[in-house]
């Protein structure tokens, strides 16, 4: 149990450190928030009143403490620009990001698993070489460049998908998913490449094991050996990588969200930074960091469950 506890404490410390650093960094920004909030025609007395009201006269540490106390009660403050509660704004943007994330991972896995299996099974064959080259090429394409190429062919030329825009789920499942396919594929194709390479490597090692030879000797069909016997023990590294992708994507899909005009967390974060909406930035950073750290925590725990040696190492270091 010490392993899990240690990891958990580590997680909390990282979240605290990241939010505190964000607070200090935002404090460095040159703009005067009180001026912005009070508006163009405000007198210096108005500004002073706003400053008092927002507690801007206190030290950074005091303000961080107050924010933290609020966050612990589930209150992330209100937006300086729209006066909307930050928690509410995040709750309305998060589903879009999560949908993109989920679809992208599904596409990536749907491509990576068959491709990884085939190229491990026929290692060094022309098909393996071709898949390997394709993967290497895809790793070198920025996802935003890929998105432009996909929009050009599939939206503008073939007109299969809308080029930009988000349709809420309330207006039907198909219009919603249709708008998400290109953004998800742009993310998935880049991730697919790294997942496939890792799966191929692990699978080649697994296929040399004796139990595979034994399964062959029993006369089991090849597809059954590959899918039932070899895939499971080969997929641990790939799942770890998948966890890392998910953790990075919670706040890292900004460019894809911008290209396709999806109202996700990444866009909320960028627009909040531009409009100097500090409580909103702080809330977004909290969600992104918690997401990142939580996914990594789960991956660590999975590792610990699968391989007891990791647990011991973890408690020492």
């Amino acid at each position: 149990m010490g392993f899990f506890w240690g990891k958990f404490v580590h997680l909390v410390v990282v979240v605290l450190a990241v939010t505190a650093v964000t607070f200090v960094m935002l404090d460095l920004l040159p703009a005067d928030v009180a001026h912005e909030v009070a508006g163009q025609s405000a007198t210096s007395r108005d500004v002073a009143a706003v400053r008092q009201e927002l507690g801007l006269n206190d030290s950074v540490a005091a303000r961080y403490g107050r924010w933290l106390a609020g966050a612990a009660r589930g209150d992330l403050g209100t937006s300086l620009v729209t006066r909307q509660p930050v928690g509410e704004a995040i709750a309305s943007h998060l589903p879009v990001t999560l949908e993109l994330l989920l679809l992208a991972q599904l596409f990536a896995l749907a491509l990576a698993i068959p491709a990884g299996i085939v190229s491990a099974w026929r290692a060094e064959s022309p098909i393996d070489r071709a898949l390997g080259s394709a993967a290497f090429g895809l790793i070198s394409v920025p996802s935003f460049a890929l998105a432009i190429v996909l929009i050009y062919f599939f939206s503008l030329r073939l007109k299969w998908f809308p080029a930009i825009g988000f349709t809420p789920l309330s207006e039907g499942a198909w219009p919603n998913i249709r708008g998400m396919i290109l953004p998800a594929v742009s993310v998935a194709l880049v991730e697919f490449a790294s997942l496939m390479r890792v799966l191929r490597g692990d699978m080649i090692a697994t296929l040399r094991e004796e139990f595979i030879l034994f399964a062959r000797a029993k006369g089991l069909p090849t597809w059954r050996i590959l899918l039932r016997h070899a895939l499971r023990p080969s997929s641990f590294t790939m799942l770890t990588l998948l966890g890392l992708h998910i953790g990075n994507l919670i706040g890292g899909a900004v460019i894809i969200e911008t290209i396709f005009a999806l109202p996700g967390i990444g866009r909320l974060l960028v627009s909040s930074i531009f409009s100097q909406d500090y409580p909103m930035v702080q809330g977004c950073v909290l969600i992104i960091t918690v997401g990142y750290v939580a996914v990594n925590f789960l991956v660590d725990i999975c590792y610990g469950l699968l391989d007891p040696r990791v647990r011991k190492e973890g408690s020492v270091g």
Partner: peptide, 11 residues
């Protein structure tokens, strides 16, 4: 590594 990269760059 847990810090959102974009926030760092933008700020």
């Amino acid at each position: 590594l847990a810090f959102p990269r974009l926030v760092f760059l933008l700020v």
